[in-house]
Every structure is written in C-alpha cells, then in structure tokens.
Write a protein that binds this DNA or RNA. Structure first.
Length: 1000
RNA sequence: GCUCGAGUGGUGGAAUUGGUAGACACGCAAGACUUAAAAUCUUGUGUCCUUUGGGACGUGCGGGUUCAAGUCCCGCCUCGAGUACCA
C-alpha cells in the first residue's frame, strides 16, 4: 500500500460491482423503498461532456446514501433511443438508424461505466426495442379505447360509453370531447359502423382529426408546440409553418385542470411549476355569442373581461375562422382573400417577429351587440389566433392594449368606459376604475362588474361563464421513420386498433428514410410483406413522437422483463412514485407534462394506483465551459519618423496578426484610458507601455525588414501618437492552455491554430503568453469541451464525482474550471494517507477529539445530503480529514465510519479502504453511522463580544453560566473598559450560546 | 413587456432560524525538503490606513426596521432563465 493509485482501484471495484451484481435491485417489501431516477438520456453521437453526468452523480449519491440508510433502492438507467438525429444521419448516409443508435449507446455506456454509477443495468430499457415499444403501443391502444367523463372527472372505457349511446344516446353524456350534435339511442343504433366510429372519434382520448399543426418542411414532419423554440424547430433550427393535416392527437386538455391542481402535490421548483402553470394557461371569463347581421350564424367569443362588454366597438376573427368566407361582402372579398393568403404563408417566426406590425381587413359584415343592439364591424386580423379560444374576440379598445392599437391603426372609435381613466395614449388595463357608459354595470369596478355581467349574460341566454386553457391538444403523429409504429390499420378509411396478441407492430424495412413522392411518411414505402402485422387496406404510416416512450418509462424499470403486462401492478404499488427525479429544466413543458398526463390516465383506468409520477424533482444547473481566448489587437501609431533617424514621413505603424498576452494588453488599455481622462501620466505605467510599444516597433521592423534598430523606445514621443486601437479575440483549444498560459508549441501543431506561425506575438517578460477567458456554453466550436473520460484517467472517477458536486449548488449554473479538480483530488489523497500503510489500525477506544470530529461530521453530512446540498458535504468531509490528519487518528472505528460517510461520493476509494479495514462485504452494504450528540457537548462556549454591533473580542465562559454571571464576567474583562470609553453601557444583550452585544 | 431566479474576495462558493461575513477549495506569494523539477508540507492572502497594538470600510445601489441585517421591509440598478399578440 503506497500511493493512491486511482486507476487500479477504480478498475478493480468496477469489475467487482459488475461481477457481484452489487447494484441489483429486488422487490423486498420488508424494506422501505427509494426510487432515484435520472431523466432519460438520448444517446447522441457526440458522447458525454462533464455537464451531462452532474445530475447522474447527484442521484447516484442519493441512491447510495439511502442504501446505507437501510432503504431498498431502485436506481436504473436506459435510453430514449428513438429520435431525430439518428434518422437525419440515416438519411444522409443510408445507414439504418438502429445501427447508429447502437453504436452511440455503446460509447455512452463506456463513459457512464467509467464514472462508477450504481445503476442496476439488468433493468435497462430502450424505447426503440420492440419488447419495450410493444407496451407503448399497448398504452396508446388503451388511450384510444377511453373517453373522459367530466362527471366522474376521470377517463373511462369507451365500451361503457358505447353502451350508453345504445341505451340513451349522448344527451346526458358530459364528456371532454369535440362539439357533437345530440343523437338518440335509436339514431345511434341505426348508424352504420363508419358513422358510429366517426362519432366515437369525437370522444376518444386519442383521436384522428384535421388540425392546425406546426409543419416543419425541412424535417418533413409535424412538431409539437414544445418542440418549437423562437418560431423554429428546437432540433436543427428550421422554419415552421401552420398547416391543416389529418393527425393523431391526445386529448390532454381533458386533464388541464388536474395537471394544474396536481402541481400542489409535488415537490418541484417554483420556476418549474410556474412554467407548467403558464403552459396550461388557465383563465376565467365568459363565452358570449354575437349575432351576425343578415345571417343565422353567431360568433362565439371568449373574454376574461365580460364587464367591459359595453366597450365593444368591433370584432376580430382569426383569418382562418370558419365564418370569414361566408360573411365577407362582395366589396371586400378580394382584399380579405389576399389577406388570408399572406397570413397563411407566414411562418410562425415571421408572425412572432411581426408583432408590432398591425394588420387586418374589414369584412364588410356587422355583428349585433348583444346588450345594446348596435351594429359593430367585423374585421379579420392575425393577432387573433385560430387555435386559442374560439378564434374570435370582442374588441374593447378602451380596455385592451392590442384592441386599442388595432382601433388606433384603423381609425375605429375608442369610447371610454372607465371613470377617470386617460385612454388617449393607450388602453386602461388595470382593474381599479369604475365603469361608465355601461348601462347596468355603471359605477362598478372590475371584480363586481365581471360577476354581474356574467350573471346577466347567462340570464339573457347570451352565453355563459367559462374557463379557458391555453394548453392545446398534443399532436401525436410524426411523419418520420425512427419512432414507434402505431398499432393501427385502416379499413375503408376507418382506423382500427390491433388485437393485443398482434402487438408489437415492428418497424418495417424501407428502401429510404424519406417521404414518398406523394408526400406520405417513410413507412408508406414499406412493402406489404415488410410489416410483421398487416391488416385491412393499409397500416398507419405515421410514427409516434419522441415523448411517447419517455412518458411511461419510469414504470417499466419496475418490471422491465414482463412479457404479459407493461408493469406488474404489485410491483408498481411497491416502487410507486419516483422519490427523486433529476434532470434539466428544458423538459418543463414537454416530457414532464406528458408523463404526468399518462400517469393520470393509467391511474384512472386502474393500471396503477398513483396519479403523479414524480414526487420530488430537481433541475440540475448547466455546467458552463470556460473558454480560452487569444487577444488580438490592431493598433495604429503615427509619428515614428524619429525611429531610425530616417524620415519616413507620418508613417502609421500597423502590424497584421498581432497577438498580445493579457497583461500587456491591460497595460495598453489602461494607459490609453489615463491619457484620455486624466492627462497626468503615471510614470510606471508609461514605462511599461513604452516597452510594449518598443516591442511592437521591433516587430514591425522585422516585417519591414528594417534591421538597424537598437532601442527605439528611447526616442519615442509617447503622448500623442496613438491613432487607433481595436481588440478582438479568438477561441483557442483549452487543451493547449494551462493556468491561462498558452502552450504555443502544442497549439501550433493543430491545423486549426496554425495561424500562430505567421503571427506576431507579444509575451510577458517571463516569456509566457497569457490568454483571456470567458464563461459560456460548452460547445465544440468554442474549443471548451471537457470530457469526463480524460478527467477519469487523470484524476479518477472519485475525484470527478466529488469535484462536480463541490463546484456549487446542484441547481445553479456554474462554470467548469479544471484547475479546481486538484483540490478534491488532494482531499482524496489525504484521506488515503490517513489510513496507515501497514493497515495497523488503532483498535482501542477513540479519543475525545476524534469522536467530536466524527460526530459533527456525521451530523452535518446527513443533514446536508437530506437537503441536497452536496457541495457543503464535500467541504465538511475535507474539514474532517484535515482534523483527523492533525490528530494523527488511526482509530479503526473512526476511520470505518468516515469511509461510510464518504462512500456515496467517492465509492471506489472507500471500497478499497473498507476492504483494508478488514471488511469482506461491499461498503454499499454498510450501515450509515448514527449521530450521537454526547460527543459534541462542550463545557465552555467562546462568546463573540460586540460593542454596538461590532465584534471586538472573544470571551470563553462556561456553557451553563447564567446571564447575570456572564455580564459580571464581561465587565471584569480587561478589554471591556477600553470599549466603554468611560461611558455607561445602555444595554447588554446576552443570547446564551450565541453572542454578547453591549450598547454604549 | 410579463413571470421566476440571482448579485458576497482575484475565482468557485460558505454562512440552514436575523447573532463572529468570507468556511472549504482554487489561484497567488513566501518558506521547508530537493542538485533540480514534480509531489508533499508550513505560513500568509477582502480592501485601505497603521511602527506594533490596532483602526476604518466592506455582501449590486439608496433608504428603513432592529441591541444586531448578506439574511426582514420599501424603492432602484444589473445579469440570467422562461415566456410572449392567450382575448
């Protein structure tokens, strides 16, 4: 036993764990369970950088800690292995995405294994594996065969609904569904199958319908709202446009209220809950019907301010609104049609960029104000969205800024309906003012006005109070190859689901991963024989979206090999909710909402007994890269004629490719600043500057091949000759830089940085070239990517694990700084040295000091782990190791407990030390040491003594001393008189075991 | 624009309930060991003033509450994240 050799130790124990199945989880109902889960990784081709494992390390620590605490721990991992990148690669190269995916998973697994995670790999799942997606298809089928009963507020079997229809029609059915005309039992029973099935589509929780979708031509597929960022596709950044397409959708809106309410039951961060609340976007108001003059049709609008209804001066419909074509008068037809066309051609991004540009057209038609009976103009405008509410608004320019802008732009009157409000410059959007010009609402403020208005609207049959959600149905079809096939076939254009025993429908082979010439999805290319199941006229050609497999994977880990069910219910009852879920906040509105939705559905239908998947969720912060930059300047001087005695005229000094070390650049910029501002020259700075300038002149002389220069700086007039200074910087590979010092020889070998050869370089006096730095996202193009592999080789997985935790709070974004890893590496080395080389531990009773160190460490580490404050745990352990080192503690009992405490963070080294302590079982089976307060009890307390709140000196007193005695001791102290300065103390505050404060 | 976070040494950060601001670590400086380097160890390290003793200032800025404020309250500034015609 000599030096701490992390490589051999880590290999040894990784092998041991895998051979002994140390992390295998079994259902042991005698123990309390703990389920720790990381967000499903997508195995990308780029592999892991140091930012990725951060969350895995945290959940791993928690899993190991809970195991030591006696819990039965489930800590699995797997791959969300369907997805766009592998398919895009397949399109480019013709290689089957399964092959790429497999290769990526292998690399991913190698990287993960190096870090020493306590995953039970026997439970691995892959969404692209037919054994897995069989059950994704099966769940789809359950959703298809369900409807949402608003009366019981849950999903129920569609068979029950069919029975109801056959018995009494749909009059008494209160469902979350499409607008469906009332029919009787008799009508239902007389309908043919197609009509019946079409009607059922209105009720099913997943249904086929024409809907406005985000179509991305570049990717050749539809995207969900959460897959679009800033109007372009999240993957690839391609434009997106609106298109009406026949698509599978999930009726997630049925669950809007429960998804909202459920947030109160889970422990997510406030910001994440807020994001979900915004996404669901609940708003209360009223729906009101406006008659259209000259037509039988009514326009339904949704408003959150029914109290402002007397301020309505016009209406605006979305360009896509059904009624537009019908009601537009001949006079305006051409203009309206043209407007509709341009609106439709706009991409989502154009539309967003155009917010300030007010556009619209008058239809020539009028609506009748339901209260006043007045005629109001009907316009169309693309600020009204077809997909929200009813696609129509009642415009109240006095009370809504967008309506005000629109009215102002098109010269529509803006009558005021608020007492004392100034609406000449903009709408009055607050709720404090009393209403006027509003008939029966006059004199009321918003709150009372809204309820009275709603009451009147309902009483007069003009509409009703309503709650609206921003959340839209989730489009579930993707026109791509690399995803789950639907368990669906078509007969006479009616979709049917397959029988359970026909599942899974596996992905058929195709000749290319592209759409067909008719624009059908890639699966349409598959020959009939290529399908493992083929029914009816054709199979469904769409595939499921990326979130299908990831919406329920946490359930499959509980029972990954079950061939009869997606999960055994007893196992699901035991493992239950995920106790700790860690992942990035980018999934706030996608994955997290969908998996909550599916969990609620599966619970409704009785397959599981809980309706929230994740009890506690932590978003790990991003690890940012620290880029190294080479400063490049372009500097111009004039007045160099004195340089070598020859008259060169007013020549400018300009040197191309001038690279300058950081400190030298600072000298120049400081000097210029001072010259500009203060005029009085700082001599020291000036001399430094002159030197640099001399260097530059020398370099220029080299360029100009003027060689007869000696010490040019002596002759220079420095004060007035700077014409221009421009600085820029170039990214340089962080592997060529150490402690901000550039290794030029190393960098020059990289073809990317060969420009260094032809550059002029100004170094520091000692010959170093110091780089600048910036903290930004890790990316290849910035040459700042750190892979965990290199660090594992150099410092070991234990160092990497500890360092990632030591960096700062888990949830906070923080810059990666490789220099710092030596600190935790030193800590592990010190820990190693604490254990005697000959393994001759002190078997006797531990010293008081050692016990004190140990127990205060147990206390703090336990508390900190429980509140996920892992960075402070590392600090605490460092202190413990430092103290025990100073005490020269070799006590077996102390060191054993210490090893256990550190083991969740640094599992390899502690396994080795544990073995050296004479244990034959893995340290993962050890018991977490118990805290005993008696070791921390002190007889004295060292009081900080403050005068007027300023700490002056320490005073050590017995811990049980009373306030009066403390005061006596205080005034007896020699220093007290000095601080009193002859005055009487006004007040003395004594907080036992905390502080003494004297007010003078 | 709105919503939610966050601003503490040269750097990452600590201070859990209002009670010694800067723990722990990096970096830097000096020293020991060494032919030398590495490794290791010791000491110092918020800023300014001071011969020592010590003093003044100090948690983005300005106020306030309190014996006592990084922490609580009011107003502002800056940065980050999310979101955006949602009627």
């Amino acid at each position: 036993m000599s030096e701490y050799n992390h490589n051999s130790i880590e290999q040894k124990w990784q092998k041991y764990w895998s051979e002994n199945k140390t992390y295998k989880a079994t259902e042991d109902t005698t123990k309390k369970k703990f389920y720790a889960l990381d967000m499903f990784p997508y195995p990308s081709g780029a592999g892991l950088h140091v930012g990725h494992p951060l969350g895995y390390i945290a959940s791993d620590i928690m899993a190991r800690y809970k195991k030591n605490k006696g819990f039965n721990v489930l800590h699995p991992s797997g791959y969300d292995s369907f997805g766009l990148p592998a398919e895009q690669y397949a399109i480019q190269t013709g290689q089957h995405p399964a092959i790429t995916t497999d290769a990526n998973i292998k690399r991913y697994r190698q990287q993960l294994d190096k870090i020493g995670f306590a995953f039970d790999w026997e439970r691995e799942v892959r969404t692209s594996n037919p054994d897995y997606y069989k059950w994704t298809q099966w769940i789809f089928k359950q959703i298809f065969q369900s409807w949402y009963n608003n009366d019981t507020d849950k999903a129920e079997a569609i068979d029950e609904l069919i029975a109801t229809f056959a018995k009494e029609g749909n009059a008494n059915v209160n469902a979350a569904c499409e607008e469906t005309p009332v029919f009787t039992a008799e009508e239902w029973n007389n309908w043919d199958e197609k009509t019946q099935r079409q009607t059922l589509m209105n009720y099913r929780l997943t249904y086929l319908a024409d809907s406005w979708v985000n179509w991305c031509p570049e990717l050749g597929t539809v995207l969900a709202n959460d897959e679009i960022k800033d109007g372009v596709s999240e993957r690839g950044g391609h434009p997106v446009e609106q298109k009406l397409m026949r698509q599978w959708s999930m009726r997630i809106t049925a669950y809007a209220e429960r998804l909202l309410q459920g947030l109160d039951k889970v422990d997510f961060s406030d910001s994440l809950k807020e994001q979900q609340r915004n996404w669901i976007g609940k708003s209360k108001g009223a729906s009101v019907f406006f008659d259209v003059a000259g037509f039988d049709d009514k326009i339904e609008v949704f408003t959150t301010r029914p109290d402002t209804i007397f301020g309505v001066t016009f209406m605006v419909l979305a360009p896509e609104h059904d009624l537009v074509a019908k009601i537009t008068t001949d006079e305006y037809k051409a203009k309206v049609a043209a407007y509709k066309k341009t609106a439709a051609a706009k991409t989502e991004r154009d539309r967003q960029a155009d917010v300030k540009n007010i556009t619209g057209e008058f239809t020539g038609a009028y609506a009748i104000h339901p209260f006043s009976g007045e005629k109001v103009q009907i316009w169309i405008g693309d600020y009204v969205l077809a997909t929200y509410g009813t696609g129509a608004v009642m415009a109240v320019p006095a009370g809504d800024q967008r309506d005000w802008d629109f009215a102002n732009h098109f010269n529509i009157p803006i009558p005021n309906i608020f007492e004392g409000a100034d609406i000449s410059e903009g709408a009055y959007t607050e709720k404090g003012a009393k209403l006027m010009n509003s008939d029966f609402l006059n004199g009321l403020t918003a709150k009372k006005g809204m309820s009275l208005a709603t009451y009147e609207i309902e009483k007069r049959g003009l509409g009703k109070g309503k709650t609206n959600y921003r959340l839209r149905e989730a489009i579930f079809s993707r026109q791509r190859y690399w995803g789950e096939p639907f368990p669906v076939y078509y007969k006479n254009d009616i979709p049917y689901v397959l029988e359970d025993n026909q599942l899974p429908v596996t992905l058929p082979e195709v000749d290319a991963y592209l759409p067909t010439e008719d624009g059908e999805p890639p699966l349409a290319r598959a020959k009939k024989e290529a399908w493992n199941v083929f029914e009816g006229d054709r199979m469904e050609y769409n595939t499921m979206p990326g979130w299908a497999g990831s919406s329920w994977y946490f359930l499959r880990y509980m029972d990954p090999k079950n061939e009869k069910e997606f999960v055994n219910k007893e196992k699901a009852d035991y493992w239950n909710q995920v106790d700790l879920y860690i992942g990035g906040s980018e999934h706030a509105t996608g994955h997290l909402l969908y998996s909550r939705f599916w969990t609620k559905f599966l619970c409704d239908r009785g397959f599981i007994n809980f309706d929230e998947p994740f009890k506690k969720l932590i978003n790990q912060g991003m690890i940012l890269g620290r880029s190294s930059l080479i400063n490049k300047i372009s500097i111009q001087f004039s007045g160099l004629t004195k340089l070598d005695g020859k008259d060169e005229g007013a020549t400018n000094l300009h040197i191309p490719n001038l690279l300058i070390s950081k400190r030298k650049l600072e000298v120049i910029t400081n000097h210029i600043k001072i010259l500009k501002k203060e005029k009085n020259i700082n001599n020291e700075l000036k001399n430094e500057f002159l030197k640099i300038k001399g260097e530059m002149i020398f370099l220029r002389a080299k360029v100009a091949k003027v060689s007869n220069l000696k010490t040019p700086t002596d002759e220079l007039d420095i004060e007035a000759d700077i014409l221009d200074l421009q600085t820029s910087s170039l990214h340089i590979d962080i592997n060529c830089v150490e402690n901000d010092i550039l290794n030029i020889e190393k960098a020059i070998k990289d073809p990317m940085f060969s420009f260094l050869k032809g550059s002029h370089i100004i170094k520091e006096e000692n010959g170093d070239f110091i780089c600048g730095h910036e903290v930004e996202k890790m990316s290849k193009s910035k040459y700042n990517v750190q892979t965990p592999d290199d660090l594992c080789d150099q410092y070991g997985a234990d160092s990497l694990r500890c360092y990632e935790m030591f960096l700062g709070p888990l949830e906070q974004a923080k810059p990666w700084d490789t220099q710092g890893i030596s600190g935790v590496h030193n800590f592990l080395k010190k820990l190693w040295r604490l254990f005697p080389e000959d393994n001759q531990f002190d078997e006797g009773a531990p010293t008081k000091d050692a016990l004190k160190t140990l127990h205060k460490t147990i206390k703090k580490v336990t508390e900190d782990i429980e509140r996920y404050s892992f960075n402070t745990v590392i600090s605490t352990c460092m202190i413990a190791v430092n103290e025990l080192g100073a005490q020269k503690c070799k006590n077996k009992q102390i060191l054993s407990d210490l090893a256990v405490i550190i083991s969740p963070f640094a599992p390899h080294i502690t396994e080795e030390l544990w073995e050296r302590l004479g244990n034959t079982e893995s340290i993962t089976k050890a018991t977490w040491p118990a805290f005993n307060e008696k070791h921390l009890i002190e007889s004295n307390f060292s009081y900080p003594v403050s005068f007027n709140g300023k700490m002056r000196f320490m005073l050590e007193l017995p811990i049980d001393m009373g306030k009066d005695d403390i005061e006596k001791a205080l005034f007896a102290h020699e220093k007290t008189a000095g601080y009193l300065d002859g005055k009487d103390p006004k007040k003395v505050i004594v907080v036992p075991k905390r502080i003494i404060n004297v007010v003078v």
